[in-house]
């Protein structure tokens, strides 16, 4: 018996392949192209965002963010994310569970449908809601008759956001749950656990890293979505403007500091997401590596 201590999970380090055939200069050129590309198209814009936001000093920056319309946009964005992310967590887990663990008719169709938001332009998905809920839309009269406002209001923004973000959690979980199979759940049931206990003690811990990863991506997209939300929101200042929409309005009004100040928050969110994602990948990758061969 070896030492009873818990070995720490070492992150997987890839070793340099012995069969590298490219010459050193060729390698250098390829790497230079990759870095230059990232620098020009990603890093530079990011720096400019922060530079412009702080162009008139920290005072103007803080003021731009505390202005009522900006605060309302931040508030609305947080609200929309707070509703749509949990909804998509529930949907994502249900869909992944159904697809990974049961056999049923229409499974391939469901899998394809989940990918739909990725293959459809967000503007189109926004338009679909206009056609459905708008004044001239399919349900327009009925909604009006019952005094329900969906379009140009928070419900419409939430619906559009849920639509464009629903693949994230599901797509993350489906392959994970398929690989894990039913064995652990069956074992828990055979030991007397009920369905809820099985989910809570066995399924959820097995998928937690994948789930977190999906939630992170889902959240980033929910806060950053522009196209679909732009179509359904109606751009009512202080009411139905989310952060991305607010940035556009301010920019069109030549309020560069205001626009870039709000944009810097979104860019900050992107950076935080990136860092968390990297950390998760390290952790999640180690977890997967540790459970291989088990």
């Amino acid at each position: 018996m070896a030492d009873p201590e818990i070995k720490s999970y070492e992150p997987y380090h890839e070793s340099r392949s012995a069969a590298v055939t490219e010459s050193r200069p060729a390698q250098a050129v390829l790497m230079a192209i990759a870095f230059a590309f990232l620098g020009v198209f990603l890093l530079l814009p990011l720096i400019i965002v922060f530079h412009e936001a702080l162009a008139k000093g920290i005072g103007a920056y803080v003021q731009a963010l505390s202005e009522p319309d900006a605060r309302s946009a931040i508030h609305l964005t947080l609200l929309v994310a707070a509703i749509s992310v949990p909804l998509n967590v529930v949907f994502g887990i249900s869909a992944a569970w159904a697809i990974a663990k049961f056999e049923f008719k229409g499974k391939a169709f469901l899998t394809t449908l989940i990918d739909l938001p990725f293959s459809v332009s967000p503007v189109i998905s926004g338009l679909v809601y206009v056609l459905l809920f708008g004044a001239q839309g399919l349900l327009g009269d009925w909604l009006k008759g019952h005094g329900i406002q969906i379009l140009f209001a928070v419900p419409g923004i939430v619906l559009a956001t849920v639509f464009v973000t629903f693949p994230f959690v599901a797509r993350e979980l489906i392959p994970l749950m398929q690989e894990q199979g039913n064995g652990d759940e069956e074992a828990a049931l055979s030991l007397g656990a009920n369905g809820w206990q099985t989910f809570w003690y066995v399924t959820l811990p097995n998928i937690k890293w994948g789930l977190l990863y999906g939630v992170l991506l889902c959240n980033a997209r929910a806060m950053g979505e522009f196209g679909a939300v732009s179509v359904v929101s109606g751009h009512i200042r202080g009411l139905t403007n989310t952060m991305p929409l607010h940035v556009e309005i301010l920019y069109n009004e030549y309020n560069a500091v205001g626009a870039f100040a709000v944009a810097s928050l979104l860019a900050g969110l992107a950076l935080v997401t990136l860092v968390l994602k990297t950390l998760l990948e390290m952790r999640y990758g180690a977890e997967l590596a540790a459970t291989r061969g088990h």
Binding site: G183, D184, G192, A193, P205, N206
Partner: peptide, 19 residues
């Protein structure tokens, strides 16, 4: 149900809870 039957089942690949 399987819970009510009170059987001990050992799975082919053990199905130990890895966490």
């Amino acid at each position: 149900s399987i819970q009510e039957r009170n059987v001990g089942f050992v799975f082919q690949h053990y199905a130990l809870f890895r966490h």
